[in-house]
């Protein structure tokens, strides 16, 4: 395998810069677009969307609320009110459709910070870290935030949540919250690759639980074309989700990445010069040539 300067270099050579970055560009368009919709009001006086990611009102009629924040509020002992509940139900429904952690890669503003840190880390060749930090930590933190909400009677994670602090800060004024964002950046750059999004963030953990049943998934449909260049593993923020789908053909595992921690970011689709990956649905998961049962796979 020829050494590449960066993951996706070959795809870029073959398909050109634009096509080798199309999902990345689409995501940035989505992330920035959402941010701009929120900023049009305070900066331009055009109030299409008011509020922030925790709860917002679009065109004066469509309420959207973060279900994780409301869950904490519920644990804090607050009687939930209809507007916020309706907003949360809409959001849950949406992410059940497009993939739970699509929130992380298509909406969350912190993603741009951590993606930048990961890219810089890769370019600077910073290695190591991450052995102590386990990916399940985020689920423990998620449980902890609900427990602390229960014990303190407050929406506990909102006191420190970098995601809402950053988004709110950009729209309402950032104060000292930039230090928290800088901390996340430095953590991801020096301590461990995607330390925040991939290991610690309980918001992502919450949305990944939603994603357990979500419809839209990335599929390694053309996995027989894979030439083991490892680009997808290098670019993926959650590389542990790839092998079952990409290399499961012999074990009879379907090509769809079903792990709820896949963020549907589509970077693997971008960087693969063999066009192995593509967006699909969770039901498009049949294995050609003899389907083994689950028990056979496990044994």
């Amino acid at each position: 395998m020829s050494q590449q300067p960066y993951p996706g270099a070959r795809a870029r050579e073959e398909r050109g810069w634009l096509l080798a970055n199309r999902w990345l560009l689409a995501r940035r368009f989505s992330q920035l677009g959402i941010l701009i919709l929120f900023l049009l009001g305070p900066l331009g006086g055009i109030w299409l969307v008011t509020g922030n990611l925790n709860s917002s009102l679009t065109l004066g009629v469509l309420p959207l609320s973060d279900p994780y924040v409301l869950l904490q509020s519920f644990f804090a002992g607050h009687q939930l009110v209809s507007t916020a509940l309706v907003g949360a139900v809409i959001v849950v429904g949406f992410y059940l459709l497009v993939g739970g952690r699509a929130y992380c890669s298509w909406v969350c503003p912190v993603n741009m910070v951590t993606d930048a840190a990961a890219m810089l880390r890769q370019r600077l060749g910073i290695k190591g870290g991450g052995t102590r930090l386990r990916r399940v930590t985020r689920y423990w933190i998620l449980a902890m935030t609900l427990l602390v909400s229960l014990a303190s009677g407050t929406i506990a994670w909102e006191f420190v949540n970098p995601v809402s602090m950053f988004h709110r800060g950009l729209i309402f004024g950032i104060g000292l919250a930039w230090t928290i964002i800088a901390a996340v950046f430095l953590l991801d750059l020096f301590v461990s690759r995607y330390a925040w999004c991939g290991h610690l963030c309980p918001v992502g953990a919450f949305y990944s639980l939603l994603g357990k049943y979500s419809l839209v998934r990335v599929s390694a449909a053309a996995r027989d074309r894979c030439d083991d260049c490892m680009d997808c593993f290098q670019i993926c923020p959650e590389p542990q989700v790839i092998p079952p789908a990409l290399r499961g053909a012999e074990k009879g595992v379907g090509p769809v990445i079903l792990s709820p921690n896949c963020t549907n970011c589509g970077r693997c689709i971008d960087v693969c010069s063999k066009n192995v990956f593509g967006f699909s649905t969770r039901f498009n998961n049949s294995t050609p040539g003899g389907v083994m049962s689950r028990t056979e796979v496990a044994s």
């Binding site: 925790n54 917002s56 924040v69 009677g153 929406i155």
Partner: peptide
């Protein structure tokens, strides 16, 4: 205040209106 911190989601809709 105690109940407020368990109920307010810090969305800023009141600020805007």
């Amino acid at each position: 205040e105690k109940e407020f911190l368990g109920a307010c989601v810090r969305c800023g809709l009141c600020v805007r209106d």
